[in-house]
Design a protein around this nucleic acid. Structure first.
Lengths: 122, 122
DNA sequence: GTTGTATTTTACTAAATGGTTAAATAATAA
DNA sequence: TTATTATTTAACCATTTAGTAAAATACAAC
């Protein structure tokens, strides 16, 4: 059967790249400046090829770019695609702010009840 | 070998859930209000069990909750986890808002937000 | 040219993902 | 009770993912 799984849409690639703690940690590290593959791999208990693959995923999502400097291939953060993530998420803000408000309201209610309770106790 | 793939971290689950256009479309639909599985499945050229699986992924990520109403199991958006996504992304904003002006604007906005937050806290 | 260092590619695995059809379950309606 | 409707579960399959070890490549230095 021809099942051509077409998530060639960029947003899916970006979300997919972010759905892994190792890759998010790599991005975090890259906010400090560019770094070699070895340097990026150092904190992880996994082989170099594994990290190399993670970098390929990040590169494919457009989240990093790679240069060339002697035998090193320094990676550099490119946060551009995160703008799309921010925009997508922003679109839902009223739905999570709303629940925040409701929580706030609930807590306020709770405080009132406690006050009432305190008053009764006295 | 024991390869226990431990992305039990919530953020990975959420990003993973969002890394699929069908699931994002379902969330989009749910911003209009709750809906049955059949209603949610209608726009897609895929079987009901396939949609059911997508819903399970969304539920596991905490992005939807499901009720019970006769033989229907209405799904409801729970955007709460998107707050974590927004926060994570916000952390990188200065890297994708590259223009000085926009950075400035961003910092000004941040100050406003802090003021608002302070006001709310009291 | 040989050696050393950095990185990728290849070939392989196990598990996860995203889909299918068919059967099972749950509640309603007749 | 039986039939209908809504949804899930089970069993299956192909592809992708995340890792491995070992070999290949690229460049620098001696």
């Amino acid at each position: 059967m021809v099942r051509q799984n077409l998530p060639s849409d960029h947003l899916s690639a970006v979300f997919g790249a972010l759905a892994d703690p190792t890759r998010r940690a790599i991005l975090e590290r890259l906010t400090l400046g560019q770094a070699s593959v070895n340097a990026l791999a150092a904190p992880f208990e996994m082989s170099l090829p594994a990290v190399s693959k993670h970098l390929k995923v990040l590169e494919h999502a457009g989240l990093i770019t790679r240069g060339r400097e002697a035998q090193w291939r320094p990676c550099k953060l490119d946060a551009g695609p995160l703008k799309a993530v921010a925009d997508w998420t922003e679109h839902y803000r009223r739905f999570f702010e709303e629940s925040f408000d409701r929580l706030d309201e609930y807590l306020r209610e709770l405080q009132n009840k406690e006050k009432k309770h305190d008053r009764q106790k006295r």
